Computed example of a mutant assay.
Amino acid sequence: MSEKVQVLDVQLEKSKKSISSIVLIILVLKGAILFYFAYLLKEAYIQGEMHFDYTFLFFIVAGFVAQLIDGALGMAYGVSCTTLLLSLGISPKLASASVHTSEIFTTGVSGLSHIRFKNLDKKLFVRIVFTGVLGATLGAYILSDVLDGSTLKPLISVYLIFLGGYLIYKALRKKDKHKPKTKYAPLLALFGGLLDAIGGGGWGPIVTSNLLSQGHNPRKTIGTVNTAEFFVTYFATAVFIFLLGVQHIDIVLGLVLGGVLAAPIGAYVASKVNSKILLILVGALVIITSSVNVISLLIK
């Protein structure tokens, strides 16, 4: 019995060290981008490019609401903010770049909050973070230099509508005892990261929804996908900054302020809400946001 206890203690210690390493990496990367962002804000202020009018407050509110939903349900920040920017006439490339820049701050705080509330599945995190980063980096390059991401949106939206319905079905049916599948998690993350960078959003709807449909715990899945999203967003943004630079700094700042305020609240909600309710809410959100995208495309 004492040997089993010692083994468990060793495993627990290793788990704590690995989680501490994730936290440290997030803090170091956030420190680097904070330094660069402070420089950009200073330059924008000197050149008179900062505009603190009613639209700035609007972006703070938009960032708060979007991150509150994203932190609690594991999706919709990118989709919500990108839709908003596109409606204001900003090009898909700059909209995606602006959203991903703001997401570096919001996903970092969200990831740390989820770790604090013990919403992280370490094994699942390792399986999705590396291919997710690869997909996002490739997608950012394609969008910046090769492709208009709007061409893929109709197909993705239709797929997500059916997936959202399946999630609600999974929540309402009798619970089965099958072990959650993780076989295709790396490939799923690669696809999710690629489409997220190209479309300005999609990491959460694609990765979270599919993992939940495979039977994963909603709280752990949402927390893990949100934490991995920081790294996915960080490297996609690095590509956007290198190829496009940073524009609309006032919009990015508004989204950042609102999102950072909401991130801990969203993580707390995810740790407290019943798993079945979370699953239904995620499914409904996927259906609603995807349906809006399809309708808007048909109206054009």
Rank of each mutant, 00 (worst) to 15 (best):
R173E: 11
K174E: 15
K174F: 05
K177H: 13
H178W: 05
P180Y: 04
K183D: 06
A185F: 04
P186S: 13
P186C: 13
A189L: 06
A189D: 09
A189E: 10
G192D: 06
G193V: 03
A197C: 11
I198R: 06
I198L: 15
G201Y: 02
G202I: 01
G204C: 07
P205V: 01
T208A: 09
N210E: 07
L212P: 02
Q214N: 09
Q214E: 14
G215M: 07
R219M: 11
R219K: 15
K220Y: 10
K220F: 09
G223C: 06
T224V: 04
N226T: 05
T227Y: 04
E229D: 05
F230S: 00
F231H: 03
F231P: 04
F231S: 04
F235V: 02
A236D: 06
T237K: 04
A238C: 09
V239P: 13
F242Q: 05
L243D: 11
L244F: 02
Q247T: 15
H248T: 02
H248V: 00
I249Q: 12
D250P: 00
I251C: 03
I251T: 05
V252M: 04
V252W: 08
L253W: 04
L253S: 11
V256A: 10
V256H: 08
L257T: 07
G258C: 14
G258I: 12
